[in-house]
Structure formats: C-alpha cells, structure tokens
C-alpha cells in the first residue's frame, strides 16, 4: 500500500470507544494517521506535539467544551490555521443543513457519523495542507 503523505488527524472525544473505533476505521483506510485524546483539556498540548492537519472535536465533553477549545486553537499562533471539524451528539443532521454545516465558522457532523462521509470531509479539510 502506498504510504506517502498520510493525513494526520487529531481526534478529541471523551468517549474512548468512539476514539478507538474511529481511529481503527480511519487508519484502516490507509490514508490517515490518527492520534486520539479523551480529555478536552489535553487537546491543545496534543495538537502542539502532533501537528495534525485536521482536528476533530467533540462539542460536549465533561472537562471542556469543544467550542472553547476551538476558540483557543484559533487563538494559538501555531495552530490557528489547522482546520477544525466538530462532531456532536446534540444536534441532528437536519440542523447541520440549516446551519450549512457550520458552527462558529467550523464545519460539523452529527453523530452517528457515516464513516465514508467523515473520510470525505477530512480529505476536503486536509486537502490544502
């Protein structure tokens, strides 16, 4: 398998089962290198270290909410250009449509996300990097 230029994705979600299975799927495609983080507060340190091309953020997490983390990423000089994709269990796909797929300017997908769709979205977001 071609191993050139795997796209680096940081996946932040408080549910270990989600980060585990999504990582498995994405890496299974051979096109992604995934680092997972189950604590919202660890998202920025992990991003600084891992330098992902896309950060996938859960919105509702016990220790930090995705919106704040996204704002912090945008404020960070090293990370501000990294695209963010929200994953959320709170809104339905219909609302994704209603907002044209954006929360605070960032695209988002409603859980449960179809994996093909996630792959397409990640490819589109990481395309410029």
């Amino acid at each position: 398998m071609e191993t050139t230029a795997k796209k680096r994705v940081l996946l932040v979600d408080d549910e270990p089962t989600i980060t585990r299975t999504v990582k498995l799927y994405l890496e299974g495609t051979g096109a992604f290198e995934v680092r997972t983080e189950n604590q919202g507060k660890q998202a920025i340190p992990a991003a600084r270290e891992f330098r992902p091309q896309v950060i996938v953020l859960d919105i509702v997490m016990p220790d930090a909410d995705g919106g704040t983390i996204a704002a912090d990423i945008k404020a960070d000089p090293d990370l501000k250009d990294t695209p963010i994709l929200f994953l959320t269990a709170l809104v339905s796909q219909s609302e994704v449509g209603a907002h044209r797929g954006k929360i605070g300017g960032h695209p988002f997908l409603a859980k449960p996300v179809d994996m093909d769709k996630l792959v397409d979205t990640l490819n589109a977001l990481a395309g410029g990097h």
Partner: peptide, 22 residues
C-alpha cells in the same frame, strides 16, 4: 437522551463500517 444514545450509536456505526470496510 440524544447525547447519551448518539455516542454509543457512533461507536457501533464506526465499528460496523470498519468490519465491512476491512
């Protein structure tokens, strides 16, 4: 309910699609 149910559904769907894909 949405939050509590959608997260496990996400795991299930990702898992199922992983098995299918692989």
């Amino acid at each position: 309910v949405a939050h509590e149910v959608k997260n496990p559904l996400m795991t299930l769907l990702a898992g199922i699609q992983y098995l299918q894909k692989q």
